[in-house]
Design a protein around this nucleic acid. Sequence first.
DNA 1: TCAAAAGTGTTGAGTCTACACCCATGT
DNA 2: ACATGGGTGTAGACTCAACACTTTTGA
Lengths: 276, 276
Amino acid sequence: MREKYILDNLEEKDYLDKYNIDKYDRPSVTTDIVAFKIRSQIGDTYRHNSKSNLSVLLIKRGEHPFKDMWALPGGFLRKGETIEECAYREIKEESGILPVSLMPVGVFSEPNRDPRGRIISNAYLSIISDESVLDAGTDAVDARWFDVSFVDTGDCYKLTLACDDIVLTTCLKKLKTVFKKTDFQLLDEGNLAFDHGRIIATAISILKDSSKDYDLIFDFLPEKFTLTALQDVMETIINVSLTPANFRRKIAEFVEETEEMVTGAGHRPAKLYKRK
Amino acid sequence: MREKYILDNLEEKDYLDKYNIDKYDRPSVTTDIVAFKIRSQIGDTYRHNSKSNLSVLLIKRGEHPFKDMWALPGGFLRKGETIEECAYREIKEESGILPVSLMPVGVFSEPNRDPRGRIISNAYLSIISDESVLDAGTDAVDARWFDVSFVDTGDCYKLTLACDDIVLTTCLKKLKTVFKKTDFQLLDEGNLAFDHGRIIATAISILKDSSKDYDLIFDFLPEKFTLTALQDVMETIINVSLTPANFRRKIAEFVEETEEMVTGAGHRPAKLYKRK
DNA sequence: TCAAAAGTGTTGAGTCTACACCCATGT
DNA sequence: ACATGGGTGTAGACTCAACACTTTTGA
């Protein structure tokens, strides 16, 4: 119908032929991806369950600006692709991971957020299961998972990202919460590139909120999992502990049993479940 | 801290001086605003309450492409403003309305969505109370409120927008629902400009979903309102009827009484409430 | 007086929370 | 044997939909 309309309407065709797209100031458009993963730490003894940690993927920048600093994976939009396709491509290229799904975090378009000029970032959140192997060698970039800690100190919200001996710290101020999304302002960007501390803080607020309906927590786990592992994911994200009896009843409607069991753990074997 | 870093790092400064922003293909960036309002229809008799309708603001295009067709208000991003600021400015310029808040709908970036070239649209949803007068003369544009009907016919989702004798009809196919947002594909764009039918359909799905927590329905009403008016807004959006007794108990925690009453309605006067 | 809408009370069904309890295993 | 996590049962508190009921007004 649209094509027919164009062909019928020679006046419009003529207009489009003469239309000069350079008439408007055009910004560059990028995507940044906040990729979350749950890292299990090995327990002390054979009996104790492991503790878990939320972690986020960062890339060491090889180019200016912010050379040698840590930044979110992402990059410039190419011809012929949508923003979402760009996000999938960038994270694949930079880390070898292909996420299951991407959730929009927001558009960051402050005029001076990038020293190179007018660059708008479309941020996405993605959830990576332990299965999705990080094929680190792909693009010869240094990509690592940083443990996330995000606490309200009273003075400010302190975002700490740690990987081995590298510790990045950012201070933020909580601005408004609109439509389930809390916006932050950078007080001290620490050693994170660009406004990426702010993007990560916003992504964490969205992650916590949307975990409540047990919709996306499954993406952190392989196809088959124990209910305790699922509870561990939940507790890691929202950072409170839950009573196992009630948790398993609440998520019962979202999962179904399999025949498989986990053995060799020093206690009663756990049934494996999958998402319904 | 950032400024200090730049000054200290002459190598980076040198890099930025030589950086040519034109190296990458740059799209044009626009915003489109889906502005919703509840239109009250006058009841049959002095006794009957009025029925309401969800309506959306459209602008008649004065320029090519899609000249003389109806489109969402919106326009190109300018230097020095964020995307959200651009959205506020555009709807103000085109309709005289200054919305209370804007909610992101999504980024529409299919390469061929605009015949003029690569143009990315950042869509926002806004809610307009009857108070925000439509100062129609502002920019000499033809802006009108269209009654919305959005129904599943079995074959497709039919979006019908009607204003007096103007009726615009669009057919869409439901794609996936991810993170509370349902995505649609245009089957027949009808007589709406660009992919605006798809944007409106997505906005309606978000509006319905986020009404459930009684968070944004208040934006449709003036500061003080009756609980029946609030229930009417709710019913209009989600398109089901509710029992008054239970509705008023459920929203009790979000509102507080005022001393004022509404009289002259032919029945017991209603207390006015305001948002807590 | 009466129709219509405003507003309250009640009841029974269902849901959630806390906690007591039993089960199956590796060492 | 026993510590540990897996898993179930249940009482009391709480929530919610349905519906009967009273109140207040304009005509």
